[in-house]
Amino acid sequence: MNENYVTFTDVVREYRTGSVPVRAANGITFNLQKGKLNIIVGPSGAGKTTVLNILGGMDSATSGKVTVDGRDISRLSKREICTYRRDDVGFVFQFYNLIPNLTALENVELASQIRKDAFDPRTVLEDVGLGHRLGNFPAQLSGGEQQRVAIARAIAKNPKLLLCDEPTGALDYETGKSILQLLQDVCRIKGVTVVVITHNSAVMPIADRVIKIKSGKVKAILHNDNPTPVSDIEW
């Protein structure tokens, strides 16, 4: 069960733009372990984000099967997919996507309000190291701090999956590293299954499992029994 916590079986996603259909995902198959840090890596346009969106319930597969914790999410109705998004998934975006006219705390509260067994927003913010910036608006926070708020918002819901789409893409080296450290800590301490998308193959050693994607297909799946601490890697 733990081994097949998340499974992708021959997932195809076809976009119809114009006359030529484009296959962003062309028969992707992999599985993820529960409570591990997983990294999906690949060049731009390989189909990483498509995979993440399907996993996060933001997009649906054209064909193929996706299961999360034994539940087939590729056949859910719109309503069920919304509930799945609310209860099981925490999303962290490259550009944070915080509500600008709500404070850091209110942004996190937004997520915890809609979930019954959510974590206390204050505690979560303290956990990500922002206990002193609760009342600040996103515009008053640095990029790294905003991404921490976004992560806090995602994990406050106590989700099964924490999905991060290029979380360090808009951040500098040091800040990026501290965000990765945070994600690794969340994974270790809270036992959340974390999926991180990146085009930076230098961060691969920190993950328990790496899925290499190229041109809509899985090129390789690497298992790493001894992940490197974030502080030890450089790029």
Partner: peptide, 14 residues
């Protein structure tokens, strides 16, 4: 629009 996108992405119903 963006706010709507974020709120619905988090899982708040439309």
């Amino acid at each position: 629009k963006y706010e709507v996108g974020v709120l619905t992405a988090i899982g708040i119903k439309k």
